[in-house]
Design a protein around this nucleic acid. Sequence first.
RNA 1: GUGGUUGUAGCUCAGCUGGUUAGAGCGUCGGUUUGUGGUACCGAAAGUCGCCGGUUCGAACCCGGUCUUCCACCCCA
Length: 460
Amino acid sequence: MAQKPSIPKGTRDFNPEQVAKRNYIFSTIKSQFETFGFQPIETPSFENSDTLMGKYGEEGDRLIFKILNSGDYLSKVNDDLYAEKNSNKITPKISEKALRYDLTVPFARYVVQHQNDIEFPFKRYQMQPVWRADRPQKGRFREFYQCDADVVGSDSLWQEVEFVQLYDNVFTALGLKDTTININNRKILSGIAEVIGASDKLIDFTVALDKLDKIGEEKVKEEMLSKAIPQSGIDKLQPLFSLAGSFDGQIESLKDILSTSEEGKKGIEELEFINNAINTLGLKSAKLQLDVTLARGLNYYTGAIFEVSAPEGVKMGSIGGGGRYDDLTGIFGLKNVSGVGISFGLDRIYLVIEELGLFPETITKSTEVLFINFGDNEALFSLKAIKVLRENGVNAELYPDKITNGKHMKKQMNYANKRNIPFVVLMGEEEMNSEVYTLKNMNTGDQTKLDLTALIKAVK
RNA sequence: GUGGUUGUAGCUCAGCUGGUUAGAGCGUCGGUUUGUGGUACCGAAAGUCGCCGGUUCGAACCCGGUCUUCCACCCCA
């Protein structure tokens, strides 16, 4: 055999069974999106580099796949720049396009570009692959699908409430019980930073706080100290570390801590609004939990922050996330348009459902009836019956190669067996002459001779 | 981007401190069975030991590089 072919790091092939399972997740999410009134759009796989660069922070820029210009791109780089060997400076000269890194920024671009044709508030959903030059791990790929739903052009908190319900509906429909929807608010994080005198170090502060679950209270304090957050401020955080329990209980503690911060108080108000509404409306199977350490996507979120973690016992990063961004389109020149949205990580959801064994068995439906091919005369006769079966909505097929010298019957039966085809029809010379079909049930091994009408009935 | 880990037949994996022709199970193909699959028995095919280079009389095994896998950071879905 020649050199075995391979695919790039972090990419995957999907076999028929995997595609069926993925489609099951896609269609479940899609139908929930549509139930909530979202409309689909699609955007190109790649965008102009300046649309994407700088939107995800320094870290994000590093992870964007850049596409080389066509033609003799190096000849257009001037000698001084080339001699400098600085990748960051040369990259913009030789690459003017890049693969989409998420669906939110291209959506913002779409909204700005088509603002005159869009009826606001605009509720769109989008399910497309995105690419990141990340180092792969479990549940972490370089090509993966995001399923996003966003609303732009409304700053109503009812949207946040609806998104919590949407999360709940999707995960309930997928059979993932007891997921936890963690919620926080950027204004609360800003408020806390303000109270402890670290407003200018908001990012360092939240990044450290976010690690509380992982590295513990002491390490978090150490990290904050090392980022030049004053000890006096860290001391004020003490009540925060002991925040636990109910949503309402945490809110009460936060009211104490944030009593001097206008922004913080606004954040508390928003959280209370959402929580009260959800309490009244109820959730099917998910749980809404306040998590003050939740600090994701700080580059553009301004209000609510969502993250859905995998069910207890499954080792997996978040399977969904989202939040409110007051001015996402501002970077493309359209001011004062508020947006809020959530995202589902299809590939991770797949892994979780697989690990928990929650895929329904019925989703990999394929051929229901296989006709054994005895020879050309019989094949033609069989195809007439197959045509009628198909018209009646039965998935039927003829084994393409005929039996020669009486051999290969076994091969055809085996084929049906391996593909889990439940019925086989034997249509040989004998049957053809008497116009009956021998139907074999592959599970029981029973055989019956039937006419076409009875055959259709039997396999339906 | 940092540190570690992994790669042997289609698949899952053995292979001792370097020593003849690299093994097993499953799968595949053929036969027992020329109109009957799953079970059983018999037999066969299938490997550049990820790739490139080095050390050695001799390398799947040791060394370097590279790609890939998984993991911890970073970050994230």
